[in-house]
Design a binder for these strands. Sequence first.
RNA 1: GCGGGAAUUGCCAAGUCUGGUCUACGGCGCUGGACUUAGAAUCCAGUCUCAGAGGAGUUCGAGGGUUCAAAUCCCUCUUCCCGCACCA
Length: 929
Amino acid sequence: MVEYEAQKIEKKWQKKWEQDKIFEVKVDPKKQKYYVLEMYPYPSGKLHMGHLRNYTIGDSYARFKRMNGFNVLYPMGYDSFGMPAENAAIDHGANPEEWTNKNINTMKNQQKRIGFSYDWTREIYSHNPNFYKWDQWFFLQMLEKGLAYKQESYVNWCPKCATVLANEQAQGGKCWRCNSIVDQKFLTQWFLKISDYAEELLEGLNLVDWPDKVKIMQRNWIGRSEGTIIKFPIVEDDRTIDIFTTRPDTLYGVMFMVFAPEHPWVRDWVKGTQYEKEFERFYQEVMHQNIFERTDIDIEKKGMFIGKYCVNPITKEEIPVYISNFVIYKYGAGAVMAVPAHDQRDFEFAKKYDIPIKIVIQPHDYELNVAKITRAYESDGVLVNSEEFNGMENRSAVKKITEKLDELDKGYATINYKLRDWGISRQRYWGCPIPIIYCEECGTIPVPYEDLPVYLPKDVTFSGVGNPLETSKSFITTQCPKCGYKAKRETNTMDTFVDSSWYFFAYCDPPSIESDIPYTKTNVNYWGNVDFYVGGIEHAILHLIYARFFTKVARDLGLHKFDEPFQRLLTQGMINKAQPFCTNCNAFLMKADLEQMKCRKCGSKDLIQKSVKMSKSYGNTVNPEEIIEKYGADAARLFILFGASPESGLEWSDEGVNFAYKFVRNFFHLLTTPIQDKGNKRSIRDELIIYKLNKTIKLVTESINRIAIRGAINYIIQFVSELAKYKEEGIMKKIYDECREKLLMLFHPFVPHVTEEIWEFIGHNKFLSLISWPTYNSALLNMENDYKWNLLNNIIEDIKKIKFAANINEIKKAIIITASEWKYKFYSLLMILIEKTKDQGEIMKELMKNEHLKIHGKFISQITTKILKNIGKYSKPYIDASEEFQFFNEIKLIIEKRFNCEVDIVVEKDSNLRKSSQALPGRPAIVII
RNA sequence: GCGGGAAUUGCCAAGUCUGGUCUACGGCGCUGGACUUAGAAUCCAGUCUCAGAGGAGUUCGAGGGUUCAAAUCCCUCUUCCCGCACCA
């Protein structure tokens, strides 16, 4: 017997694949392309289980598509700019570039050891000037088009990362990377005008095959809302405040205005008035809260009147102006109109500050009373107190009031988006420099295209304070490209999400400094867009929205033809593992507590095991390297794919991996150990295994197409067990060989090494990786074969059951009695009758018309009752009495072998056993001695 | 509050779209047996309840409905997870 040596086999094939360059691809217009991609990984230096899962899913699918004749682009690269390299420099004096390169190398070696079928010739990484030159190029192009601009504003600042964050990166007020509370800072920053594409970003979601969850998250983030701009004149001021509202129907109920305290007009208005002092105090208080606190639903809404009035443009009434913490300057106009009767927030504010309330919408089925209401009425109804609009449904009034405002030049309909522009300036060193020069004479000057790339300098000092890039004299000091005089460079670098916004196009034609465009259109148009993209849900509104934006910009620059970057998206689930959990405190033990094994809060040692996502802080991670060393890459891949469907959480278990390992090993032994050829007499058994093979090919193919990988493997496992039985019983070589070869093909995408090895072992010299996917003969997949397959399995099952129920240890003899012919007639007739009616009386009446059946009336009546209880459970017999008798004779040997006993096959009429009358078509009577 | 997802037999986890071999794949765990000095490993059998013949009963979060037939379709409820959240 040949031993299964995972390490040896895997390394052997990894080397062969690489030597023969079998995964390297070229543009081939004759072949249909398919682009599989996993999300651009940050090279942290160590592969974790999440990576392993991510790549294993992608690789299996890429291999499957390749075997199906597609020209498969399947590349890998590294999102290599970012904070950790810089922190390593600050903390222990590492050189960021060397540190990063080392990490990439380690990671790449680990990836290679798992046998992913990447085309490594297309590898890219962000800190390569060949790559980041084009970040700069895109920036300059956007600057020309007005899509990049510089603005002074309040921005999110992470104190720990010491840099600005985009809105998408300040998740719930916390830094997406380090979870620190984010502050607000007033800074000058570069922005990309993603909001220009808001509508298209929304529309484009209808073009892609993404999980609904992700689409919904993006729709919410873009936050389109249709509404009206209403211009409120300000008393003793020339200006109007133009606010946005989705509820112009409540305009007659506007009782006050609320401004953000930081709105610049406010300070002017209170200057020198009795309100000035109180305003200053309030302003300081509000500025102390961060923006996320201010917009927290639970935080108290505070405000004050500032002695100013606005005019309701339609009623001409003067209404007071308040300021409050809940209004934010950077949202919309920095002021809102307040309708206390129909908005809960405004209602609470009005109650608190004793502002009058006016009802302008009455519900259909009851009447609101101003004096009695305890909350705002926010639903639909009919307008009241609204002059000419009284009696109108409020939904219609939205439109009508907007129209009237438009006529009066007091407002207009508009669309508002929640999506803000993307702030890309980062006050960090390890990123792509923004190609801008500041000249005292000429101002802000873009670096000319011919001077790109602006290289990231090496002469920097990492002190841990401030932006290290500012310490590089050689970098900062430059000449103005316009006037030639001394000038300074921009020291902010770009958000690393810029790199991941176009890298997927770069793989189609790896970028170069020498070129004058980032990639050639023909290459990208051939390979693009990404057909199948695999990654985590955490990028739902980060990377996945930025990349869509860049794709549209690049398209508008004429670089390619695609509207959307990623056609089909799969968001893989987390990997979980059991961790001690204290039910008393409802908390998990963290890594630090594990030694004592007691709850850090209550000290309880009464802990249970509960599943939680794998993470460093819990200390429940499993290192893929160790797993591969112990079980091999194929077993690791198999476990990951078979443990759960790709989208759902995967429960890590050592026993599970062990099973996968055993399965692969047994699979190897099954297909490599010698066979006993039973000669050329083809029996029903041979036909049935071929039937099962064809059925398996169909099921596996369909499952992989649906990315139901677990299902596909499940069918394979079942077929392996059938094949093992078949082999045990004695085989026909030709048939066994066909099963073996096709099984290897089916299993190959998941466990590529062991299948290549067996493929070679059985005498093939071409790579299995390049073999065409097997097809199936649909003619074999008919009802008759299904029926026979079940017949075989049922008889074995039944014998087992009887053996168990009768408590028989050793079967000496099994007698199988097939039913009399009239029973087949009765069955067929019954099935036809059931089509017409389900009434048992009618059916019996009809059946008893037949003289041959009439004599068996009682038996027929009993069976009919049973069948009518659940019709679908009983199928009509697909073979007749003599065929069935013949069938059992042919499988007699199998049964004899399986139970190590003698088997007799008789027909009912030849048997004098009492039991024999129980025989039914497809269900012979069985007597065990 | 809004939106999304989920609940399956000790545990993990398929099945649900397309109702019927569904007592419900597979794995783990457990029980018994074989092998072995013993263990590990491996193999076989069993694992909802009852049953000395393939049977019967009760199950897929709870309740109701549709159907000859429901884990699967419809309605109501409960619980859990996730995302967004005073968005003007």
